[in-house]
Amino acid sequence: MIVAEQKPIEEIIQEIQDDHSVLILGCNECVTVCEAGGKKEVAVLASALRMHFMQQGDQKQIEEKTLERQCDSEYLEELRAQVDRYDSVLSLACGAGVQFTAEKYPSTAIYPGVNTKFIGVTEEQGYWTERCQACGQCILAKTGGICPVSRCAKRLLNGPCGGSTQGKCEINPELDCAWQLIIDRLSSLDKLDDYEELVPIKDWSPDRAGGPRKVVREDVTS
């Protein structure tokens, strides 16, 4: 999923301070799972903002809504009837949701309420870690199912570097060395010989280097 983290409240206050009516818009997908922008977080943030502005003597109108998804036109349409009532929408969706909401409603200001962090997993409650950078050309088959692009601080395709110490990365002793994990995994699969195959120079054009990307599937287009 896409993992996000709520922005500091001071930054959110600054974004919306000049507006009289604001809709806080949650998303029921990834940001709900990572507890950054679902219905619950919308309610908590709305209360905190109401309290803050009330203390300032600001009678700001703050309303709440959570859509099934903000990355889908169908669900974003649910806003159409009410969006004109607000000066701005504070979206707690990922960067894709914020932008898609803005695209659908050109005359309403849309602000981000979260920082979109990465594509990752819930290792345990309240603990999310990165697994993928959407490089566009998956090499996991060659690296024991562990991604050096997202998990090595130097994204070395032929690691580990000389800074790997007791299984940890040189930049942070709490961070696993991705290449140690790859080697351990290749060993347990009895495929350590694969390590000696040079991973060729990568074509980064399917990555962000190639510009904004798209996927078109004619077989499913309507």
Partner: peptide, 8 residues
Amino acid sequence: VHDLDSMQ
């Protein structure tokens, strides 16, 4: 950057 790594 690390477009290439040292081996490459």
